[in-house]
């Protein structure tokens, strides 16, 4: 009798799996998918590079660029927690397959604070 019940429920039940490439589950809003960099407020302090455990981030002051190696990044979000200007944030969209290994962003800025310092002296 137990067996018959099991068979009948299993016949009428929906499958537990998804038909993957056609039906994709939305990522949870808390999911750590990728790092988003907003270059506007960046002061090229290099704290993110210093804190990054897998050495994925490279900040070059001379060229004014911020670079992340997406293949090395382990999504620990240490950089997000340590950014003094809140330029970094987490998005729940994961990096697409076939993305380029590195993402290089040029930072627009930073002469303002330096100029202020020079004038105060």
């Amino acid at each position: 009798m137990g067996m018959l019940n099991l068979v009948l429920t299993n016949i009428s039940r929906k499958p537990a799996t998804r038909l993957y490439p056609f039906e994709i589950r939305e990522p949870f809003k808390e999911f750590k998918g990728s790092i988003v960099f907003n270059p506007e407020n960046c002061i090229l302090c290099g704290l993110c590079q210093k804190k990054c455990p897998p050495d994925a981030i490279t900040v070059t002051k001379a060229d004014k660029t911020w670079e992340i190696n997406l293949f090395r990044c382990i999504m620990c979000t240490e950089c997000v927690a340590n950014c003094p200007k809140d330029c970094l944030s987490v998005s729940n969209q994961r990096t697409k397959t076939g993305a380029k290994e590195t993402l290089k962003v040029s930072v627009p800025i930073v002469d303002k604070p330096k100029a202020a310092k020079a004038s105060s002296k």
Partner: peptide, 23 residues
């Protein structure tokens, strides 16, 4: 695993603990 993913942000490697507390 779904619940763990929603609490910690990751499915398998949760990274919940850090020196001094939790993340």
């Amino acid at each position: 695993l779904d619940v763990l993913e929603r609490i910690t942000g990751n499915r398998v490697i949760h990274s919940i603990s850090k020196v001094g507390g939790v993340t």
